[in-house]
Computed example of a mutant assay.
Amino acid sequence: MSHFLTRTLQALRLPLFCALLWWLSAGSAQAQVSCTATMTNMAFGTVDLVDGSAPSTTATLSYTCTNTGSSATFARVCFNIGDGDQGLTNFNPRVMKDSAGDSLKFQLYQGTTGGTIWGSTGNPTVTSPFAVDISIPRRSGSVSGTKSGSATMAGQILGLQGTAPPGAYQDNFGTVHTSITLTSNTSSAPTSCGTGGAGTFAFVVSATIAKSCLVTADPLNFGTVAGLPGAANSDQTSTISVTCTTPTAYTVALLPSNGATTGAGVMSPTGGVPGNTDAVAYRLYRDAARSSPWGGVTGTNTVAGTGTGAAQLLTVYGRVLGTSANVRPDSYRDVVTVNVTY
Rank of each mutant, 00 (worst) to 15 (best):
G272A: 14
T237M: 09
G275I: 06
V266C: 08
T302M: 05
N233S: 08
V316Q: 13
G309P: 06
V280R: 06
S291H: 10
L254D: 08
P256K: 04
A253Q: 10
P274T: 06
V280Q: 03
Y285T: 01
T243C: 03
G299F: 03
A304W: 03
L284Y: 04
P274E: 06
S241Q: 14
V273H: 07
G305H: 03
A311E: 12
T302P: 04
A311N: 06
P256S: 10
T323Q: 09
G322V: 05
Y285E: 05
T306Y: 02
T277D: 11
A264N: 15
R319E: 13
G299N: 00
T323L: 00
T237P: 02
G295Q: 05
V320H: 01
P269F: 00
V303M: 13
G295E: 02
L314I: 15
G271D: 13
D278Y: 06
T298R: 06
N301C: 06
G307F: 00
G305C: 03
T251S: 13
S241D: 15
G295V: 04
R290C: 08
G265D: 05
Y282P: 02
G322D: 03
L313F: 10
I240L: 07
M267N: 04
T246V: 11
L254H: 02
G309I: 10
Y250H: 07
V280P: 01
T315S: 04
S241A: 13
P256H: 11
V297S: 14
T237D: 14
G296R: 05
G271F: 08
A281E: 09
T302L: 03
Q236R: 12
A253K: 04
G322S: 01
T237R: 11
N258T: 00
T308E: 08
Y282M: 04
A325M: 08
V252M: 14
P256E: 11
T248A: 12
Y282W: 10
G272Q: 15
V280L: 14
S257T: 12
N301Q: 07
T245G: 07
T243G: 00
P293G: 03
G275C: 07
N301K: 06
